[in-house]
Write a protein that binds this DNA or RNA. Structure first.
Length: 135
DNA sequence: GCCAACGTTGGC
DNA sequence: GCCAACGTTGGC
């Protein structure tokens, strides 16, 4: 089981949008490093849903329900996307500020490389963010 | 709205 | 193959 963190701007696609849909293609990723992470995802892996730009916080958990396949929004055939489903909405979102200030999360790939939209989390980091979301 | 980080493009 | 210019992302 692997853990991930995926970003979306909530005015384009929010956790609530995913919850309403039930299942969605995580499309539009056009960065090679992020693509590599999506190709490494396996069915059943869990990912933090993070709201960038607005909110700037982790808001919930989703599950990878379909592994990497051609991105339906891509005409070139070069890019892939996974499918995700909502799993749990956090009672209390965990802000970037909180994560940055937490020594246990100092090595998080997302914090070190803020522009990467799909990044891996260690099991310990994932668990710690869950703990923080419970207040 | 500004700016830093970083990926991509294009001239040489 | 190098590097400057430019565009995009994303935090503040």
């Amino acid at each position: 089981m692997n853990y991930w963190l995926m970003k979306s701007e909530p005015d384009a696609f929010s956790y609530d949008d995913l919850a309403a849909k039930g299942k969605a293609e995580w499309d539009g990723v056009r960065n090679h490093a992020a693509q590599g992470h999506m190709k490494a995802m396996r069915k059943g892996d869990l990912s933090i849903f993070y709201h960038s730009n607005i909110g700037v916080e982790a808001v919930g958990i989703m599950e990878i329900v379909e592994e990497a396949a051609p991105d339906s929004t891509d005409g070139t055939g070069k890019w892939v996307a996974v499918h995700v489903a909502p799993k749990e909405k956090f009672a209390k979102p965990v802000t970037l500020k909180t994560m940055k200030a937490d020594p246990k999360l100092a090595n998080m790939v997302m914090i070190r490389q803020s522009r990467l939209s799909v990044s891996p989390l260690t099991a310990a980091e994932f668990k710690h963010i869950l703990d923080l979301s419970m207040g």
